[in-house]
Design a protein around this nucleic acid. Structure first.
Lengths: 237, 237
DNA sequence: CCTAAAGTTTCGGCATGCCTAATAATTGAT
DNA sequence: ATCAATTATTAGGCATGCCGAAACTTTAGG
């Protein structure tokens, strides 16, 4: 149970463990964690032992890994850092949304709390980042909009795009080339047969377009649909 | 002669070696380097061997340490980073000039070249930082103003404060409380006996003030004096 | 010149965080 | 219920960068 400041590796582990459960509920396993961090499974086993010693995760050998309250607190602070930095890079330094992820990944471990809070103030304490991901507040509260993957919606559903997964920068470039962005108004028109593309209308009036979206694309788009699940849930750590 | 990217430790060593010769000419010794980096002498010996292997320094055992052309290039790029970041923190995030040093120290190792250049562009490619230190250009050229420590000037000298050493944040706070800042017009009036304070006029007209400056204070202030050494020298690596 | 103090380097160790290979536990298919 | 395939953990190593202690130069005083 050391109390020293977390290393950047530890910050990364905790952040990835948290992020895994942000849009679904199953806890992460060693192998999944190793894949997302780009390290060997054995490195994860070692590190998870260390995280457990420090009281950041709960873990029984051979089972999944969950964060403790302290772990969630640390994770939320890292997620806050990451998303504020992304927002700052886009709004203040002219980065494109497909460029910000890697830069934020480096900066989030380096800057001070002071830096983060001055940045947040300058940005007007934004509540979501350029991809629509919610930015936790300094006190650890987060508004997680009730959103669904577009790929899981049935024909007839309408709503707004509230989040676009930033995992794949190439996909982000594709989307901006197609002028698909946050807050676009959408309607699911149907689905091509044999696990094929999702047919959707995006925009309306002058900006109305129809697309056949491949499954990979549709599952990166999250839709806030009044019909399905109105309102927001408020997570507190 | 490895070619891998320099670690942040290596960046720090090179930057400190460079900085030591920025305002005087004697090269740095192992012990001085160790003191400035806050590490043991033995750590410096090891690291200097590594720097030599990588072609960043010239060094004969038991003698002083100097940078190679490659070393100077790397050092200038770190100094550029540091001073641009300091300028950015003051101009864009409302930091005070006594707060920026430590933050810049962390950030300079983390940000990408892209970040640096976008920041520089946003700031209008400044040529000096909040303490008056010259910011090397992206191509490695630096304008080093011909300045002298105020503590070394004789009575009667006049000039402008062009640089204020940022080594001691407390001193910076003292100076701003006294409203002594960059570009103030000064005149050395005299010197109190027995190695005492330097008597100077700072400002003129409505802002005119007289001070007895302790030696430590006067040696942190650098004066560009037309009488002593007009013009600038242009260093190229 | 010679010796002691000061400065520098070498040596053996430690911590972090990663790896591969070997071992152990769990799971699912028969 | 058992046995392979999958998943997870331990063991032994490597690289970086730090340390203190010991050994070695250099330098300055007498």
């Amino acid at each position: 149970m050391k109390t020293s400041l977390p290393s950047s590796s530890i910050e990364d582990y905790v952040k990835v463990i948290y992020s895994f459960t942000e849009w679904q509920d199953k806890p992460i396993t060693s192998t999944q964690l190793a894949q997302r961090l780009g390290v060997a499974n054995s490195s994860v086993s070692e590190m998870v032992r260390k995280l457990k010693d420090q009281g950041l995760v709960d873990h029984q050998p051979y089972s999944a890994i969950t964060l403790t309250a302290d772990g969630v607190r640390l994770a939320l602070s890292m997620v806050r850092r990451h998303r504020l930095i992304e927002t700052f890079l886009v709004r203040e330094l002219g980065y494109r949304w497909d460029e910000v992820h890697d830069e934020a990944e480096l900066l989030e471990h380096a800057v001070s709390e002071t830096f983060i809070e001055r940045m947040a103030a300058k940005l007007g304490n934004p509540v979501r980042d350029p991809h629509g991901d919610p930015i936790p507040a300094a006190d650890g509260t987060v508004r997680v909009p009730a959103a669904h993957r577009m790929s899981e919606l049935d024909a007839g559903h309408t709503g707004l795009i509230t989040r676009i997964s930033d995992e794949n920068p190439e996909l982000l470039r594709y989307l901006s080339a197609q002028r698909i962005g946050l807050d676009a108004d959408i309607e699911v028109l149907g689905r091509k047969p044999f696990g094929g593309a999702l047919v959707v209308r995006i925009g309306s009036g002058g900006t109305r377009q129809e697309f056949d979206l491949a499954a990979e694309v549709a599952s990166a788009l999250w839709v806030h649909s009044e019909k399905v699940h109105p309102g927001c849930s408020l997570k507190r750590p």
